[in-house]
């Protein structure tokens, strides 16, 4: 649906996007993740035909952004960063204005606008000037504006920036609802947002696309080997000896020791070799007659993944 090949953009001598390639399929919700200034906004501006790339090819449903920009724009709804709307216009006039410029036939216009008002729940503020609205409502008007022509693709640049926590939850829910029917690309530098809304993540850093996959895939890829925290009760020397012998364990260390009668509870951090380390460890404990009270697969958070990928 969206196909980007070797996209490169220079601002004078500054490289903003460096041969980025990716594809987005119909119905996907893709999150652009990256530090500020990584090139997310530039990429979005190119897809929406606001900016021309220095080189590379971008097609939206087989329409090229150079050759048929009007056709491309018809298929995209765009909400730029900071949600720039005309403060002196009232909400209803604004939506009608955008609907008119979106060439929605006059007969359908008010029906479409009313539908969007329903979807984004802005019925209470229709006759207020946009300048008087809270940020949460402004963002909703921005979303309504982006969807008024029922586009296949929505591009949202930091749709939750500057909102309070409740508003963030509302907007994310709204995006998830919309995402059931539409293809969405959204950018953010807030990580929980990605796990909350997206089914695929593209991590951009320093103008380059450095990783792509589902949030789970990225976590396991960045993690490398499995790390397990285990709580074992058994004779310390024997336990250590058995773990050293086991071929599925690469490394381990004692984190904590609690005395409990003759033997003590050992809390160990074990780094596996190969997969299913926890299962193998369980069987080892059973064979050796150790008591096992904890067996937990440690996972990197998306924050840690992001930090590893972008600082490497």
């Amino acid at each position: 649906m969206i196909k980007i090949e070797n996209l490169t953009k220079y601002y004078d001598a500054t490289l903003a996007v460096d041969s980025v390639s990716f594809e987005v399929q119909k119905g996907e919700v893709v999150g652009f993740l990256g530090p500020n200034g990584a090139g997310k906004t530039t990429t979005m501006r190119i897809i929406t035909c606001y900016l021309k790339p220095t080189s590379g090819k971008v097609t939206i449903e087989d329409f090229d952004i150079f050759e048929q920009p009007i056709e491309v724009r018809k298929r995209i709804g765009y909400l730029p960063e900071n949600c720039p709307l005309y403060p002196e216009m009232n909400v209803l006039d604004y939506l009608n204005y955008i609907a008119e410029l979106r060439q929605i036939p006059r007969a359908e216009r008010s029906k479409r606008v009313r539908e969007m008002i329903g979807v984004t729940s802005i019925g209470d503020v229709l006759h207020k000037d946009i300048g008087e609205l809270s940020k949460g409502y402004r963002q909703r008007v921005g979303l309504a504006q982006a969807m008024v022509h029922d586009p296949e693709i929505l591009i949202l640049d930091e749709p939750t920036s500057g909102l309070d926590p409740n508003q963030i939850i509302e907007i994310r829910q709204l995006i998830r609802d919309i995402g059931r029917e539409k293809t969405i690309i959204l950018s953010t530098h807030i990580l929980p947002e990605v796990s909350a809304t997206c089914n695929r993540v593209l991590i951009i850093n320093d103008a380059r696309l450095i990783a792509s996959g589902t949030p789970d895939e990225l976590v396991s890829r960045a993690q490398g080997a499995e790390v397990i925290t285990a709580g074992i009760k058994g004779p310390e020397e024997a336990v250590f000896e058995a773990l050293r012998q086991a071929d599925f364990i690469a490394e381990f260390r004692k984190v904590r020791e609690e005395l409990a009668g003759e033997q003590s509870w050992l809390t160990l951090e074990i780094q596996g070799q190969g997969d299913q380390t926890s299962e193998k460890l369980f069987h080892l404990a059973v064979r050796q007659g150790w008591t096992l009270r904890e067996l937990r697969l440690e996972r990197l958070s998306l924050e840690e993944v992001f930090a590893r990928l972008t600082t490497a």
Partner: peptide, 14 residues
């Protein structure tokens, strides 16, 4: 200055 141009110029108009 306000950035509204970004919406205006990404509408399907010349």
């Amino acid at each position: 200055k306000m950035g509204t141009l970004e919406i205006l110029l990404t509408l399907p108009i010349r």
